[in-house]
Design a binder for these strands. Structure first.
Length: 691
DNA sequence: TCAATCCGTATC
DNA sequence: ATACGGATTGAC
C-alpha cells in the first residue's frame, strides 16, 4: 500500500472483496505461492493475547490446503505482530473489512470445534460484564488441547427414554416444588431460588430437576463447589438418569488428558444435538450443551464459585447470564440463601422454593444457643473453657445414644476485624461504611476502603467508644476433646484430608467448614465452636457466610425427634443465630439485602476494585470516562509487592450503570496497554473480598 | 547529509 | 508483546 494522507478513509471506500481479489492483494501470498480457499476465504480469529486494546477479532486468509480444518470454533495458529500465536476461529466469512493486506492462517491442528457458538457469545458477554478480554474468558472456558484425546472413539448416542422423576418424591415438601419440576418437564424456563431443608438429599433433588429437563429434550449444567460434592452429584445423576451415559463430569482436578477428553465428549454431544447434562466445578459453567434448559448452582455462597483468574467471573453470574441468553431454567440452591438470591426473588426474576413449615419442623434438629461469655477469651487455650456445659451435655447425650458428634471449628488465619469493645458490633466507617482497621494498638482506626481516620469513633449500637481487634485463631481441638472423652474414636476432616462419610456410630468428628463429612443417619449432635471468629471476620459477608457454614453443618444433624441437637456458642440475640434457630435463611437474606442496600454494597450496587501501584491506579482513573454518579472510594494502601507500593481503589455505581462502568474501565485499560503503560492494574467487578 | 535513537502507533 | 514509520538527535 502506498502511503496516503488519510489511509483509513480511503480504504474505507474499498468495496467488499470477493475471495479472488482478497487473495490477490496479499503480497505474502504471491511470495509463498499460497492460494486462498474458494469458499468463505476469510477467518475471523480471536487471538490468544490478553491485551485489552487487542480485544477484537482479526481477519486472516484461509489457505486452500487448510480449507477443511479452519472451521468456526476451531483452533488455529497465526502470525500476529510478528509472533506466532494461537487463536480461535469465530467465523468464516466471504470478505474482510480490514483495509490492509491479510496474512494467511499458518496452521490448524485439527478441525475439532472446541468453541461452541453459544459459548463464544456467552464468553463475550462475560468479558464485557467483568471488564475483561474475550481471550481471557476463553482460556477459562476451553481446556488446553490434548491431541491424543481427539483420536479416541466416541460413545454412541444413549437410547431409551430418560426416567421421569416423581414430582411427589422429594420436591413436594417445597412450596411450588412439583410445579417447578412440571415446568422443567415441559421445557419452560422456570427460575427458582431453592433453600434446601436440613437433612435434604440435595444431589437427588437436583438430579430430579435435571431428569425433568432432559425428558423435555433440553440440556442442563450443574455447578458444585468442590470435588466431594461433585462425586455425590455424579452418583445421584447416574441413579436418576438411568445410567452414566447422559451426563458428563468435568473437573479441573482430572488432569489434562481426562479433562480434555470429557470436554470433547460434552462438546461433540452438543454439536450432534444430544441433550445432555454436564456437572462439574466452576470451569464447567462454560461447557457446551445442546438446547440448554436448566442451569443449577449448589451453594452459590461458597467462595469456590469465584474464579481467581482474570477477569474473575463468578459461577452464579455466568450461569444467570447464560440462562437468560438461552431461555433456560435456573436453580440457585443451597441450605442458605445469599443476598444475590434474595435480590432475584425481590425483583421477581425467580421464585422461592422453600420447605413447608410443618415438614421443616419435623426434619430440623433442635438448635440451642449457648452464651459466649467474655470471660473465656482470656483463656482461649483451655478446651473446657471454650466449651460451655450445654455443649458437653449435648455431646455426651449423642455419644450415649451411639450417634456421632460433629464439631465445627473455623480455619485458622482469619483477618482480625475491629469491633466495639462493649457490644461487639463490627466497626464501620462513618463516611463510607467500609470496615475499620487498627493499624497499631495505639493508633486510631482507619477505614480500609476510603482511608479516612475515624477519630472519636462511637459505636452506632451502644455508643461505646473503645475498639478492639478480635484476636482470632482456631486451634485444633481434636486431641484435647479426645482426652476429655476417653474411649471415643476421634476423626478430623479439614484441608489436608477431607472425609466423605463417617459411620453412624458414636464418634467425634472435628471438621473445618466445608469439610464436614456426612454421617449415616445424621449426627446426634453438632457443635458450632469459636463462632466469634466467624462472626467478626473482616469481611462484608461475615454474617451471611457464618449462617451458610452453620447451616451446612446443622443440616447434617438428625431431626429433633430422633434426638438431633445443634449447639451454637453465640449470643442468641444475634440475627444470624436467630436465623439458625428458626431455620429461616430467607428471613436473614431479606435483612442482609436490606442492609446492603442501605450501606451501598453488592449486590445492591455494582462495585469495581482497581489494584496496582498508586501511579497506575491514578493513571487508569484519569483515562476512564466513568458514567455519571460513580463514587470513588479510597485509595487505601495495600502491602508492598516486589518492593513496590500497592493500593486499591473502589468504584461504586448503581447496578444499571454496571455495564457502562465495566466498558469505561476496559477502554481505559486498553488505552494504557496500547501505550505500553508499565505497571499492570487488576480490575475486579463485584469482588468477593471487599475489605 | 546520514545513521542511530526515540516515540508513537498498529498488530488482520 | 513486537515491528515499523516518522521525527529527532548528533557526528561528520
Amino acid at each position: 500500500m502506498t502511503s496516503a494522507p488519510t489511509p483509513r478513509s480511503r480504504r474505507a471506500l474499498t468495496p467488499q472483496r470477493t475471495e479472488g481479489t482478497a487473495a490477490k492483494r496479499t503480497g505474502s501470498a504471491a511470495r509463498t505461492g499460497r492460494v486462498a480457499a474458494e469458499h468463505l476465504p476469510v477467518a475471523r480469529v480471536c487471538v490468544d493475547i490478553p491485551l485489552p486494546h487487542l480485544d477484537r477479532p482479526f481477519d486472516y486468509l484461509v489457505p486452500q490446503e487448510l480449507d477443511d480444518r479452519v472451521v468456526p470454533g476451531g483452533r488455529v495458529r497465526v502470525r500476529f505482530a510478528g509472533q506466532r500465536v494461537d487463536g480461535y476461529v469465530l467465523e468464516r466469512v466471504s470478505s474482510s473489512d480490514h483495509p490492509g493486506e491479510l496474512l494467511y492462517v499458518d496452521y490448524a491442528g485439527s478441525a475439532e470445534r472446541v468453541l461452541d457458538p453459544e459459548i463464544a457469545d456467552l464468553a463475550r458477554a462475560v468479558a464485557d460484564r467483568y471488564a475483561g478480554t474475550l481471550a481471557d474468558v476463553l482460556r477459562l472456558a476451553i481446556p488446553p488441547r490434548h491431541a491424543a484425546a481427539e483420536a479416541e472413539p466416541e460413545p454412541p448416542e444413549p437410547t431409551g427414554a430418560v426416567p421421569l422423576p416423581d414430582p411427589n418424591a422429594g420436591w413436594c415438601h417445597y412450596t411450588a416444588g412439583p410445579a417447578y419440576l412440571r415446568a422443567l418437564r415441559q421445557g419452560r424456563p422456570a427460575r427458582a431460588v431453592w433453600t434446601a431443608m436440613p437433612g435434604e438429599d440435595w444431589p437427588t433433588r437436583i438430579a430430579e430437576a435435571v431428569a425433568a429437563t432432559l425428558a423435555a429434550d433440553r440440556g442442563a449444567v450443574v455447578i458444585v463447589p468442590d470435588a466431594r460434592d461433585l462425586a455425590r452429584m455424579d452418583r445421584a445423576l447416574t441413579r436418576c438418569l438411568g445410567g452414566a451415559d447422559r451426563h458428563v463430569v468435568l473437573a479441573a482436578a482430572l488432569g489434562p488428558r481426562q479433562r480434555y477428553r470429557r470436554f470433547l465428549a460434552a462438546s461433540r454431544a452438543a454439536r450432534r444435538g444430544w441433550a445432555r447434562a454436564v456437572v462439574g466445578t466452576r470451569a464447567a459453567m462454560f461447557a457446551p450443551v445442546a438446547r440448554l434448559g436448566l442451569v443449577v448452582i449448589w451453594d452459590d455462597g461458597d467462595d469456590q464459585h469465584a474464579e481467581p483468574r482474570a477477569p474473575y467471573p463468578h459461577a452464579r453470574e455466568v450461569l444467570l447470564t447464560r440462562a437468560a441468553r438461552c431461555q433456560a431454567g435456573v436453580l440457585l440452591a443451597g441450605y442458605t440463601r445469599t443476598a444475590e438470591g434474595q435480590l432475584l426473588l425481590e425483583t421477581g426474576w425467580a421464585h422461592p422454593l422453600v420447605a413447608h413449615r410443618a415438614v421443616l419442623r419435623e426434619r430440623a434438629p433442635r438448635v440451642i444457643p449457648a452464651a459466649d461469655d467474655v470471660e473465656r477469651e482470656r483463656d482461649p487455650g483451655a478446651v473446657t473453657a471454650r466449651f460451655p456445659s450445654v455443649a458437653w451435655r449435648a455431646a455426651r447425650r449423642a455419644l450415649a445414644a451411639d450417634t456421632p458428634v460433629l464439631v465445627q471449628v473455623p480455619r485458622r488465619g482469619y483477618i482480625p476485624a475491629v469491633a466495639c469493645m462493649t457490644c461487639r458490633t463490627s466497626a464501620r466507617c462513618p463516611h463510607c461504611s467500609g470496615p475499620l482497621a487498627l493499624p497499631s494498638a495505639t493508633a486510631a482506626a482507619v477505614c480500609r476502603w476510603c482511608a479516612r481516620v475515624a477519630v472519636n469513633y462511637a459505636c452506632p449500637t451502644c455508643g461505646g467508644r473503645a475498639l478492639r481487634a478480635s484476636v482470632i485463631g482456631a486451634r485444633r481441638t481434636a486431641e484435647e476433646m479426645g482426652r476429655a472423652l476417653p474411649g471415643v474414636p476421634v476423626r478430623t476432616s479439614g484441608r489436608d484430608e477431607v472425609l466423605d462419610t463417617v459411620p453412624g456410630t458414636a464418634s467425634l468428628v472435628v471438621a473445618t467448614p466445608g469439610a464436614e463429612p456426612i454421617a449415616e443417619g445424621g449426627y446426634g449432635a453438632v457443635l458450632l465452636l469459636d463462632t466469634w471468629a466467624l462472626l467478626t471476620r473482616a469481611d462484608l459477608r461475615a454474617g451471611e457466610e457464618t449462617l451458610r457454614r452453620w447451616l451446612s453443618a446443622a443440616a447434617l444433624a438428625r431431626p429433633a425427634s430422633a434426638g438431633g441437637q445443634v449447639v451454637v456458642i453465640a449470643d442468641g440475640g444475634l440475627a444470624v443465630v436467630q436465623a439458625l434457630l428458626r431455620f429461616d435463611p430467607g428471613w436473614y437474606a431479606e435483612r442482609e439485602l436490606a442492609e446492603r442496600r442501605e450501606l451501598g454494597f453488592p449486590p445492591a450496587v455494582r462495585m469495581a476494585s482497581l489494584t496496582g501501584t498508586p501511579e497506575a491506579v491514578a493513571d487508569l482513573l484519569s483515562l476512564a470516562e466513568l458514567p455519571a454518579g460513580v463514587e470513588e472510594l479510597g485509595p487505601v494502601e495495600l502491602p508492598e509487592e516486589d518492593g513496590r507500593p500497592m493500593e486499591r481503589m473502589l468504584l461504586r455505581a448503581r447496578r444499571a450503570a454496571g455495564p457502562a462502568l465495566a466498558r469505561a474501565l476496559h477502554a481505559a485499560a486498553g488505552v494504557r496497554s496500547a501505550r505500553r503503560a508499565p505497571d499492570p492494574i487488576r480490575i475486579q467487578i463485584d469482588p468477593l473480598d471487599l475489605l
